[in-house]
Amino acid sequence: MGLIDANLVPAVDGVAFGLLLFVAAAGLTLAFGTGDVLNLAHGTLYTVGGYSAAALCDGTWRGLLLALVAGTAAAAVGGALLAALTAPLRRRGHLAQALLTFGLALIGGDLLSSAAGGGDLPVAFPAALNGSVLLAGHRFPVHRLALIAVAAALAGAGQLVLTRTRAGALVRATVDDPQMVSCLGTDPRRVHAGVLVAGGALAGLAGVLGAPVIGPGPGSADTVLLLSLVVVVLGGLGSVGGALVAAVAVGEVQTLGVVLAPGLAPYLLFAAMAGALVLRSRTPGRRA
């Protein structure tokens, strides 16, 4: 009990971090599942949201709202651009896509840092989000708690869309069997383009929401891309539920794990990931 009590703050923080990663990575895993697209420019879409937040947030709720709308819209446009550019590469496999999207990430990163300056940019969230609250004898940053609430709501809404709407059914069907979808009269390519746009929008949204956690700066695109790939592969390609579990696990490794084993902190994430993947690739019948 004492151990739990002492580590409650990082544990909660891990949930916040994990849910943020989930929102950021959900689009990546669906793009994998529906279109078999390996999108290495996904981290750049997140930073589009972050830079929008830096430009538009001025400490007011109105500014934050504006940033949320603009960041989401801009990243959705980025997603549409990716859909258009990857469409001709459908038959050429992951490596051609990797070359293209990595190139786009390099170009996007250069343009963003040229436009916004080289450093880590400040993001002024409303004062109410900057403080901390005392809960059960511990001090929690308000932003992290708000992030948990918003991200959980987004995850829930996403689940509803996927399971209860026609569009969601099409997406799930495309993950399972694209040919069947085309037999039903829907072009899986359109589903896939829609997923890239929606996934881009989610990544941009995460970039605004998560600006106080992984803020806009020169290294953030790489950080988000790497963590998202970890989440997507750990969760099983195309599996949204798996991504959620993996994201929270990664969040906890990066917060709670780092506090519990500070000496191993630099190795922790990749050792845990390699371990999990090796264990899974030994299980017969499950191959990612």
Binding site: N7, V9, P10, D13, F17, V213, G219, P262, A265
Partner: peptide, 16 residues
């Protein structure tokens, strides 16, 4: 006290 770098951007436990 050395905090994990670059993993840590939440310093709450260390401030405690």
């Amino acid at each position: 006290l050395f905090t994990p770098f670059p993993q840590t951007n939440d310093f709450t436990p260390y401030l405690t």
